[in-house]
């Protein structure tokens, strides 16, 4: 049977495409098995001391400072308006805030995108939670925020109680629970 040249070429193109996907999936499998897990290096280690963060409040531009360890627990969310999972995290935090579950807890949304990008996200436009932008990358080095969304729960003594990727409501609620006992005292 005569096989047209194009058919042979198309077969090779499909084979190469599927092979590339196989490599991508194999790498992801490695990450999921914990070999090279991307999220392992994300966020400060639990039990470590959270460092203070100087930031520029958005949109008013005032210079503020978050000092973990001042007796009040804090939830620090590293988010960006251009990241869909971050929008979900902001919405989840907003929902908990509206339900009063964040009472007694400082919440700060830290963005790395320029403030002009806030307009592209409905969740960021709607939130009443404070938003800030670190004054320099050095301010958040200790938080190892190489990816977003990253949520860090810090107790009143300034110790990191939980840190990692979170966006859905139950996940975020578990971070709130990590500092819940402290919150009761703060209240």
């Amino acid at each position: 049977m005569h096989i047209p040249v194009y058919l042979e070429i198309a077969q090779w193109a499909l084979l190469l495409g599927l092979g590339s996907l196989l490599v991508v999936l194999y790498r992801q499998l490695g990450r999921l098995l914990g070999d090279k897990q991307d999220t392992a290096d994300l966020g400060p280690p639990v039990g470590s001391r959270a460092t203070p963060i100087r930031y520029t409040a958005v949109p008013d531009g005032s210079h503020e400072r978050l000092a973990p360890g001042d007796g009040q627990p804090a939830l620090i969310a590293f988010v960006d308006p251009t990241c869909p999972a971050c929008e979900q995290l902001v919405a989840s935090l907003g929902e908990l805030h509206a339900a009063g579950e964040l009472a007694g807890c400082r919440v700060l949304l830290l963005i790395s995108d320029p403030p002009g990008y806030l307009g592209i996200s409905a969740a960021f436009q709607a939130t009443s939670l404070p938003i800030g932008r670190p004054v320099s990358a050095a301010e958040v080095t200790g938080y190892r925020a190489s990816g977003t969304p990253l949520l860090v729960a810090v107790d009143g003594a300034g110790t990191v109680r939980a840190a990692g990727v979170a966006s859905k409501l139950p996940e975020v609620r578990s971070y709130v629970a990590a500092v819940a006992a402290e919150r009761e005292v703060a209240r």
């Binding site: 999936l25 991307d38 590293f78 790395s112 932008r133 670190p134 990816g147 977003t148």
Partner: peptide, 22 residues
């Protein structure tokens, strides 16, 4: 090809986005 790409993309959705630089 399309289904494999969609499945692979779904599998990778759990990875965090790279954060920008301040």
């Amino acid at each position: 090809m399309a289904a494999a790409a969609a499945a692979a993309a779904k599998a990778l959705l759990t990875q965090p986005d790279s954060a920008g630089t301040v």
